[in-house]
Design a protein around this nucleic acid. Sequence first.
DNA 1: AGCATAAACGGACCACGGTCCTTTTGCATT
DNA 2: AATGCAAAAGGACCGTGGTCCGTTTATGCT
Lengths: 208, 208
Amino acid sequence: MTTPTPPTGTPLPLLDAPPPLRADAERNRVRLLDAAFRLMSQGGVANLTMEAVAAEAGVGKGTVFRRFGDRAGLLIELLSHREKNFQAAFLSGPPPLGPGAPAVERLHAFGPALLRHEGCHRDLILASRTDPVRQYGVPGYGLRTSHLTMLLREAGADGDLELIARTLLSSLDTALVAHLTAEHAVPLDRLDATWHHLVAHLVPESRA
Amino acid sequence: MTTPTPPTGTPLPLLDAPPPLRADAERNRVRLLDAAFRLMSQGGVANLTMEAVAAEAGVGKGTVFRRFGDRAGLLIELLSHREKNFQAAFLSGPPPLGPGAPAVERLHAFGPALLRHEGCHRDLILASRTDPVRQYGVPGYGLRTSHLTMLLREAGADGDLELIARTLLSSLDTALVAHLTAEHAVPLDRLDATWHHLVAHLVPESRA
DNA sequence: AGCATAAACGGACCACGGTCCTTTTGCATT
DNA sequence: AATGCAAAAGGACCGTGGTCCGTTTATGCT
C-alpha cells in the first residue's frame, strides 16, 4: 500500500478531532441537549430519563444512546458545556485566578473558585458519577490537573507535581464536599482555609 | 406520660446498636452473605445480581432488599467484613502500622498499607460506589478518618486536622488509583512516594 | 398451650438503562 | 438525475434494580 494522499484542504484535524457528524445527527444532538436542559430545569436531574429526553426532543430512544453512549455520557456532555466559563476564568480570566498573578496566588485562588463552581452543579456532577473511575477520564478533569501541575511547577514546588495536583483536586471532590456540608455542617470557608493551608505547605516559599 | 421504665437486664445498647434480628432473619442474613461470597468467587462482582444472590441463598428477592436496602448495601456489607483485618492492623497490630511506633512513622506506614489493602478489593469497592457520596458515610471510612486525625495530632501537625486527614485519604482513593494505574501506568511505589511526601510536608518535625 | 402482634418472607410488578436489528436518510460519485 | 453506501434513526426487546402488598412465622404474654 502506498502512503495515502494527505488531506487536501481539510481544516487539519489537529489531535484526533472526532469526525464531523452528519447534518441530521448534529441537528438531533443539539435538540437532545436542549431537551435535556429543559427537562432538568423543571424537574431536576431525576427527571432526566433517557426516554423522557428522547421524547422531549422528538427522536427515538436509540438515538440518544447512539449519540451519548449512556446516561452518564449525556450528563457529562451537559456538564462540560457549563464548564467552559470556569475554564476560561482560570485559563485566561483576570488575576488572581487567571494569568498575571504569581503562581502561588493563582494556586490559592483556584481552590475557592473550584469549590463554588462545583457547588453550582452539584446535582449534575453527582448524577454523572455512575462509574466512579470515569470522571478521571473527562477532559475537564485532565485540564484542571495539568493546570495545577503547571502552577505548582511555576511556584517552585518539589515532589511529584502531577500527583500532588491530583491530591489537591481530590481534597475538593464534589462528593466529599457534599458529605461534609450535609452530614457534618462544614462551612465553605473552613474548606477554603484548609485549601490555603495545603497550598502553603506544599510550595516552598510559603514554607517559612 | 410518665417516664418509661428503664430497661431492666438488657445488655445496655450503648450508642444505638441496631435492634437484634429475629432468628430467621439472622439465619437468612448469613445465608445471603455466604451466597454472595460464593457467587463472587466464581463469577466476579458482575455475577452479583440481587436475584442470583437470592436464588443461591434459597430465599426470595424481597428478602435481600429488606436486609441490605439495595445492591450497594450488600456490597458494602461484604466489604466491611473483609476490612476487619486491615482495621485490626492499624488499630492494634504490630508497629510501625500499629501502636508502639511514633505517630509520624505510623502515618508514613498507613498510606502504603491502605493502598495495598484497597488494591485487593478494588472490584468490590468500585462496584459498591453507586452513590458517590455514600462511601463517606460507611463506618470504615469514618474510622480511617479519625485514626489519621489522631495520628496527625499526635505528630504535632497544625491546621484543620480532620480535613487534612480526609485529604490524605482522598489521595489514595480507589477510583483515582484505578485510573492512575490503568490509564497512566503509574506504579504503586510512585504513589507511596507521594504519600510520604505529603506526610512529610504536613507534619512539622519533618518540615526541615 | 393459645393467642396477638409485629416482623419477615416471597414473588408479582414496575421503571429505567442499555442492546439490537430493521428501516430510513443524507451524501458523494458518476 | 440516478445510484450505492455508510451512517443515522427508531423502537421493540431484555435484564436488573427496586417496590409493594398479601401471606407466613417467630416471639412474648396470658
